[in-house]
Structures are given as C-alpha cells and as structure tokens.
Design a protein around this nucleic acid. Structure first.
Lengths: 187, 187
DNA sequence: CTATTAATTTGATATATATCTAATTAGATG
DNA sequence: CATCTAATTAGATATATATCAAATTAATAG
C-alpha cells in the first residue's frame, strides 16, 4: 500500500515536471548538450530567474543535473533517469498500480465515514487494517517538524476520543509518532 | 518545421493531460474496467461535473473513449492510444525534435528583432525563410473566425508596412489567409 | 578589498485551472 | 406529457504557479 502510493506520487511528479511548455523546451534544449542558465534564458526568451525556477523543478525529479564552473552553472539532461522513468511510467503495471491507489483511497474514505462522526471517533476499530486508516487520519492533527509534550499529545487526541492513552501508544506503534526524552513528534 | 512544432504540442498535451492528480487517478481507475461518471465520482470523492471536466480533457487527447447506454456514459481507457502515445512521447528522437523547436523559436525571434522596429516592418525580407517568419507574425493581427473585406485587410497591413498589396498577396500565397468572393479570413 | 558577472531567492502579479453549485440537456419510464 | 436520473454546461471561486523585477548570494578578476 505504501509502495503503490509512493509510485503514484512519483509518476505524478514526473508528469507535472514535463507538463509546462518552458520546462519541456528546456529538456529539448538540453537533449543535445549541456547549457548555462543564461544560455537557456536566451534560447527560450525568458529571464534568468524564471529559467532557474524551472531547472530547480526539473532537478527535484532528477531529470537534470548541474555542474558548476566559476559562477556559471551548466545543466545537463539526466538521460539515464529520463529513460528509467519513462520506461516505468509507461508500463501497464504502473497504470494498474495507480488503479490500486484509487481503490485504497475509496476504502479509506469508507472506513472514515463508518467510524467518524464529524471530528469524533465513534470507537477504535479492532481490525488492524481499519485501525491503521484511523491512525493515519488522527496523525494529521499534529504538525510536522514540531515537538509535543505527552500532555499536549494526549490533549489533542482526547478531542477525538476519550481513550487517549491507547491511541497514543498505537500511534507510536504504527510509527506515525516518535518519542524520545518525553517529547513526541510526527514522522 | 511545422511537423516538429506539431509534435511538440502533442507531447505537451499528453503530459498536461496526465499531470493532474484526479486525472491520473481516473486513468488508473479505468485500467481494469470501464466506469460511469457517477462511479468515478464516488471512487475519487469528487462531484460529477468535476469528473466530467477531467474526462473531457482526457478525451481530447484520445486517452479515453466513451460509450452511451441509456443516460449513463461509460468511459474506458484507450489502451492502444495510451501505449502508442507513451512510446512516441518518450522516445529520445522526440526529445531531440523538441530541441529543434527551441532553436526554431530562437531563430524566429532573431528575425523578428532584425526586421521590426516596434510594430513596424523595416523591409520585406527577400529570403523565403525569413519572409515566412514575418508573415506568420503579421497574420496574428487578424482574428480567427472573422471575415475581412479587402479594404480592411489592406488597412491592417498598412499599419505595419506601406506595401500592403505585396504583403496581402504573400499572405494568401503562404496559405495564412484565404480569399473567396472578395472576403478574407485567417486559416 | 572592490567590482563584476552569473545564479538564485524573494516578493508581487497575473493567468490558468480544479472544484463546486446551479442550471440545462438528454434519455428513460410511468 | 410529466417525471426522474445521469451527464454536461455555465458561472463563480479559490488555489497553484509561471513570470518578472529587485534584492541577495557566490565566485572570480582587478
């Protein structure tokens, strides 16, 4: 389940990266040789910051690499990554995995609908699978990159269900929260 | 030149079509079987009009087909188109062609810069290639789907260069304007 | 150290578009 | 014909993001 979701976001990022006219042109311009930001700006008739922005997005998905020489940055198409990604993206299996993501989504929504009344949890699901869905929902009430005391954690959970102790333990167990030295944070 | 530009827009449309989370999920949901708009809306937790909108976009690029049964519309993934498109889109040759589009763009911009002063044409280029660039620029001053009298055409051209007769003839010859019964329209 | 050049980051703006509700269209059914 | 259902279209809104100018950073050269 985690894996097909991860694949989904990867495929989506790939398409997003190439779904902009300027970025697609950049990829084309880099197909024959590496080029500097300035050079690309000239070719595409855009300002340097714009090109810089697009290159950053392409770099995020590893479609280009960068090499520094003095103050100029040379960008090159990452042909291997391009090939690997394309191969995987066009595989029928991948499309089917995406389908699985959808049914998982639908399943999770059903569970949430069954066990929630507004923001309040009717009961803690006994089945592991269903409980996981609930825990993933619950952890969203915690901010990322923020540390909480045990008291704070309990308070947040208590808003949704009286048995905060069980749920707190389950969140740790499901590796959605982590604890050290009496502090908790989201993973 | 026309062909590589056409290829560019086709590739771009393909990526744009698949670069949205909901549309990608729709494609996934259709990978196993055909589905109705309502069914998809349920699976994706979206309203029907939203799904309808996405399906229309996917249909535009032939990624899905539609079959009517009573008042319900069943959509199916066009597997052949999907395979053909992805294969073509991701071929290295295609990427190189996109590179060609960029240099053509840059070339055209250079010509325009050389021959224009603001909106005014310095002289009509003698070379066929350069003249074509200028003519494609000029035809943009005409609206699509609108008919013009010869007098109007001449007036519009005269804003940019005194020799409107030559340019009008060239526009027809380059198949950028068409004429019948004394009326002109853009192609 | 200062000046210069290339790149990036920041902040603002404008455009595109995903989404919704409400209204409309098109079949089917009583 | 009236009604019901499914889908689409129209219109409104909110969000995302492509773009640019201005400010900042980084590396080099004088």
């Amino acid at each position: 389940m985690v894996s097909s979701t991860a694949e989904f976001t990867e495929v989506l990022s790939f398409f997003k990266a190439l779904s902009d006219e300027s970025r697609l042109k950049i990829v084309g311009a880099l197909s024959s040789e590496e080029r500097s930001v300035d050079e690309l700006a000239g070719l595409l008739n855009l300002r340097a910051p714009t090109v810089s922005h697009h290159l950053a997005r392409l770099k995020e998905v590893s479609l280009v690499t960068m090499r520094t020489e003095g103050t100029t940055h040379f960008y090159a198409l990452n042909v291997d990554a391009m090939r690997d990604l394309s191969k995987r993206v066009l595989a029928l299996k991948t499309v089917e995995n995406i389908g699985r993501v959808v049914s998982e989504d639908a399943y999770e929504q059903k569970i949430l609908k069954d066990f929630l009344v507004g923001e309040r949890l009717k009961e803690i699901p006994a089945s592991r699978k269903k409980r996981d869905v609930i825990l993933r929902w619950l952890v969203n009430y915690f901010e990322v990159d923020k540390e909480y005391t045990e008291k704070e954690v309990s308070a947040i959970i208590a808003v949704h269900h009286p048995d905060f102790a069980t749920l707190r333990r389950e969140l740790i167990c499901a590796k959605l929260l982590e604890r050290a030295k009496g502090l908790y944070w989201r993973i």
